[in-house]
Design a binder for these strands. Structure first.
Length: 213
DNA sequence: TAGTAGATTTGCT
DNA sequence: GCAAATCTACTAA
């Protein structure tokens, strides 16, 4: 399995769900930062009203979506950044947004990058995750992921008890597309954005297994 | 816990 | 100029 196979030849919604429970890492000056992906969103090209590529919109700002599967699409909004991975073949502008991870590597460094914030506040949102990694530019936009400090473990995956499909967050809520269930997350995991304390799962939503990743 | 307001950058119209 | 795939702080109950 390589990145191109993983991010092509199947529906983007399936890819988004398959990313849950995998490890996303970022190499920063010899330190390895990262964690388990717990929340993703799918954006489905020209017909998706909430996608940047809606109606075939194309510009230097969203060129990343038009790249082949496995390329990065880094988007800046206000002072924040988003981390997307393009899916499908070139010129088919679909992609997956990684919204949240459960930190497992380099936690101390990520806390520093987040100005001392701890627990779920480190990475329970797209911009927070990028801050925790220390990413403050679009430097890796349009690059294949294997040529960047980012990497996703495609060989193993932590079993999840329940995956929830829900409407996407932060998009206009005035049309049918905004209500479609294109956001996927690990049920009960505290690092999922906007997760309620009362709905937390004892084991963070992971299947109980002998071998921890 | 839910709801609201303000911050502040990028790129398109 | 304006809107945007957000975050934080503050308020009330």
């Amino acid at each position: 399995m390589n990145y191109q196979n993983f991010f092509q030849n199947r529906p983007t919604t399936e890819i988004a769900q398959d990313l849950l429970g995998r490890v996303l890492t970022y190499q920063d000056n010899g330190k390895l930062l990262g964690g388990l992906i717990v929340e993703t969103e799918a954006y489905l090209g020209p017909k998706d009203y909430a996608a940047h590529s809606y109606n075939g919109r194309r510009s230097p700002a969203n060129e990343g979506l038009y790249c082949p599967g496995g390329y990065l699409y880094i988007y800046a909004q206000r002072q924040y950044f988003f981390f997307d991975i393009a899916t499908q073949e070139r010129d088919n502008p679909e992609g997956v947004l990684v919204r949240a991870i459960e930190p497992t590597l380099g936690i101390e460094t990520m806390i520093k990058n987040r100005a001392g914030k701890t627990g779920p506040l480190i990475t329970n949102g797209p911009a927070k995750m990028m801050q925790a990694f220390g990413v403050t530019s679009r430097k890796w936009d349009l690059h294949p992921i294997n040529q960047t400090p980012f990497s996703v473990d495609l060989t193993s995956k932590r079993p999840i008890k329940n995956v929830i499909a829900a409407p996407r967050i932060g998009v206009r809520q005035d049309d049918d597309w905004s209500k479609r269930l294109l956001r996927f997350y690990v049920a009960g995991n505290p690092y999922v954005s906007d997760m309620k304390k009362t709905k937390l799962d004892k084991n963070n939503g992971w299947e109980l297994t002998k071998n921890k990743i």
